[in-house]
């Protein structure tokens, strides 16, 4: 009885949508056309003749790879530093997390303003330093668009830092004392004692970092909309365009299925890499 409200909510929002997603991914369904079963046609089209989907997958994969390596590395490094409990540790941790608590739409807006070719802070600073006018259009020029979009999320690893620090506080103090007595420097004890104990939480952080790249729609919409060309197109943005610009629902839902499968694949691979199924 107590479970009913939860199950109803789940069925209404998730279950119905997931069933529809899988079922209609095998149909030809677009605005102004009757829905009809076409088997694997949508999937074949996406993987062979579609002009934007392969690029969106490639970009998404590159971002997943960057996020699960550099992003996690930055977050873990900051956690190891802040765990040394200096006077500034808690303030830095809180400040570092602020970008994670504000709406990503707002992050997109902040970066659009910061990187604006005319009045953005970045170009203005470069002008101040070099003394020459500088009008790089970071988000819209093909050479810098990908890197600039990456910069809106790659360094913001506050979540990783908080998760690792929370787990570190569960290591008993004696472990560090023993290491110290044995003559280990704090760097050595970080590398040989702390990191191995953190394997599970770093794995979890990596999963969160990787799968977050499958949801980055808001920032892309607020900055580049996937352009120039398909330079910063990712899977959610392409799916959004397929639904709301092309009104091709069958094709969009096949992309949705592939998006879920990619998420599961990330989960399985990262769990294997970090040997998270043991212990």
């Amino acid at each position: 009885m107590f479970l009913t409200p939860g199950l109803v909510l789940f069925a209404f929002v998730f279950l119905a949508a997931i069933v529809e997603l899988f079922a209609t991914s095998f149909t030809d369904w677009a605005i102004g056309r009757d829905i009809s079963f076409v088997g694997l046609k949508n999937y074949i089209e996406l993987l062979t003749t579609d002009k934007g989907f392969p690029t969106s997958v490639k970009n998404t994969l590159v971002w997943i790879l960057l996020q699960s390596t550099f992003h996690v590395f930055i977050g873990v490094s900051v956690a190891l530093i802040l765990a040394k409990k200096k006077w500034y540790s808690n303030s830095v941790r809180v400040i570092y997390f602020i970008p994670n608590v504000i709406s990503s739409a707002a992050i997109g807006m902040l970066f659009t303003c910061m990187m604006n070719p005319q009045f953005g802070l970045v170009n203005k600073l470069i002008e101040k330093i070099t003394g020459d006018p500088f009008t790089q259009n970071w988000f819209m020029s093909p050479d810098t668009a990908f890197g600039t979009v990456t910069a809106t999320w790659l360094p913001y690893a506050g979540l990783v830092t908080i998760l690792v620090m929370a787990e570190m506080s569960s290591i008993p103090e004696e472990v560090f004392e023993a290491a110290k007595i044995d003559g280990a420097t704090s760097f050595q004890s970080d590398i040989y004692i702390v990191l191995p104990l953190m394997r599970n939480i770093i794995g979890t952080s990596t999963i969160l970092a990787a799968t977050s790249m499958l949801q980055k729609l808001d920032i892309i919409m607020m900055t580049t909309s996937g352009g120039p060309g398909y330079r910063t197109m990712n899977m959610p943005m392409y799916l959004y365009q397929t639904v709301f610009s092309n009104n091709n629902y069958g094709l969009a839902n096949a992309q949705g299925v592939l998006l879920i499968l990619l998420g599961v694949l990330c989960l399985v691979i990262i769990r294997k890499l970090y040997r998270m199924d043991e212990d």
């Binding site: 929002v13 998730f14 119905a16 949508a17 997931i18 529809e20 997603l21 209609t24 799968t211 499958l214 949801q215 729609l217 899977m235 959610p236 799916l239 959004y240 639904v243 629902y249 969009a252 839902n253 992309q255 949705g256 299925v257 998006l259 879920i260 998420g263 599961v264 989960l267």
Partner: peptide, 11 residues
């Protein structure tokens, strides 16, 4: 494990 973008159209 369900990326919310996948549910855009069904929802």
């Amino acid at each position: 494990i369900i990326p919310s973008a996948a549910l855009l159209q069904p929802l």
